[in-house]
Simulated assay, not measured.
Amino acid sequence: YNMAQNGTTFFSGNQTQIIEGSETSYFQNIVFDNITSTVPFHLASNINIGKNASFKNGIIDADTYNGKMIFDENAFHSNASNVSFADEKVENLGNFQFEFPIGDEIYFRPSINNKAVDDKNIYTTQYFFKNTGTLHPYTSKDPEVLSIDQKEYWNIVQNQGTEKIVISLTLDKNTTPELFFADSATSQLAIVRWDDTTSKWINEKGETTDLLTGADYTKIITTQVRGYGIFNIALAEKDNPAPPTDLIIYNAISPNGDGKNDSFHIKGIDKYPNNRVEIYNRWGVKVYDALSYNENDVMFRRYSDGHDTVKKSAGLPAGTYFYILRYNKNNESIQTTGYLYINNDK
């Protein structure tokens, strides 16, 4: 094994394949392509991917056989779907944005970790298509949490590091109850996390985006977490209208050069120079991050500074984005989140 080379290992054939070993096996590129059955791969050991894992055909079952898939800090994957994914614990090293190619039974249900700061971070994530109410009672919850998805959950473990990152969870009508897709004037989707200290589900909130037709999941919800552990989808009471503020956030831009709405304008932010603005796309990828945002030269104008995801000089596509604004006012730290819409029409 040599990272300077670019070898590829193919797991294909016409019978069930057992992947096992007494020690971790290291691969540069790996391809899973077996149509013998729905679950043709039995992973009974740890495998480490240094570059790319291509999920073409066949689900990898490591949950039953106590295996694990590990992605190095520069590794990624492609083609994961309901046809092929990892039914197991998946570990990721590093601080790059990463979609965990996980699922359970026959359903691909990824979670997404946004780019972080510490390149020594290690996270392990697994998705379960089952009820966890016996260990984590759904009736023990923050008062504003109205209902919790009782059919599925994610376990997101921070093995190394201290950052509280932005994560995204996915909703799929094949697994997520219909209740969580209904529009309501009084409730909204949220991410909840089981807190071992208080023994209850706490509201981590979140912003929801509908995905395009053809995706393997239907919606995605994004939030910055305050801890790690068992996560789930929930319905929570809609936030009360924000108290009057001297900031006005114009959450739609049309950067076509006509001098109108060409940038993300936060009216009044100049009064609070100790601030930070972060913008994420619908996949939870950070595309913009600025300190001392203002109404003049430090403004978001559709161009990304997410070096690991999008070329800085390339304008971002039209669509819905998620912003986080933090600023200090009268020695109080204030955080505001919401949607930002980009319209590239001329």
Score class of each variant (00 low, 15 high):
Y1R: 10
N2W: 05
M3D: 08
N6H: 05
T8K: 07
T8R: 08
T9H: 05
Q15E: 09
Q17R: 08
I19Y: 04
I19A: 03
E20Y: 07
E23F: 15
E23R: 12
S25E: 03
N29D: 04
V31S: 05
I35F: 11
P40E: 13
F41V: 15
S54W: 12
S54C: 14
F55H: 01
K56P: 04
I59W: 01
I59R: 13
A62E: 02
N66G: 13
G67D: 04
M69D: 01
M69T: 15
A75M: 10
H77K: 08
S78R: 13
S78A: 14
N79V: 10
A80K: 03
V83E: 10
F85R: 09
V90P: 01
V90Q: 06
E91H: 10
N92S: 15
L93W: 11
F100R: 04
F100I: 04
F100A: 04
P101L: 09
D104A: 11
F108A: 05
P110Y: 15
K120F: 15
K120V: 15
N121K: 10
Y123G: 00
T124D: 04
Q126G: 02
F128D: 01
N131S: 15
T134R: 07
T134P: 02
P137I: 05
S140L: 07
K141F: 02
D142M: 00
P143Q: 04
V145M: 00
Q150Y: 08
E152A: 08
Y153E: 06
W154A: 03
I156N: 06
V157I: 11
G161H: 03
E163L: 05
E163D: 10
D172Q: 07
K173V: 06
N174D: 14
T175R: 15
P177Q: 15
E178D: 14
E178P: 01
S184K: 12
L189Y: 04
V192E: 01
R193L: 00
T197R: 00
G206M: 01
T208S: 11
D210W: 12
G214A: 08
A215Y: 11
K219N: 09
T222S: 12
T223I: 01
T223G: 01
V225H: 02
V225K: 01
Y228T: 01
G229W: 02
G229P: 15
I230W: 00
I230F: 01
A236L: 00
E237S: 08
D239Y: 02
D239N: 09
N240K: 10
T245W: 13
I249Q: 14
A252Q: 11
I253S: 03
S254P: 11
S254E: 13
K260Y: 14
K260G: 04
S263K: 10
F264W: 08
K267T: 09
G268E: 12
G268F: 06
K271L: 13
P273H: 09
N275D: 06
V277S: 00
Y280T: 05
V285I: 08
Y288L: 06
D289Q: 06
D289N: 12
N294I: 07
D297L: 10
M299N: 06
F300Y: 04
R301H: 11
R301N: 14
Y303D: 03
S304K: 02
D305M: 10
K311A: 07
K312R: 13
S313Q: 13
L316Q: 03
A318G: 14
A318D: 08
T320A: 12
T320R: 04
F322I: 09
I324R: 06
R326Q: 14
N328F: 11
T337A: 05
G338W: 12
L340G: 00
I342Y: 00
N344S: 09
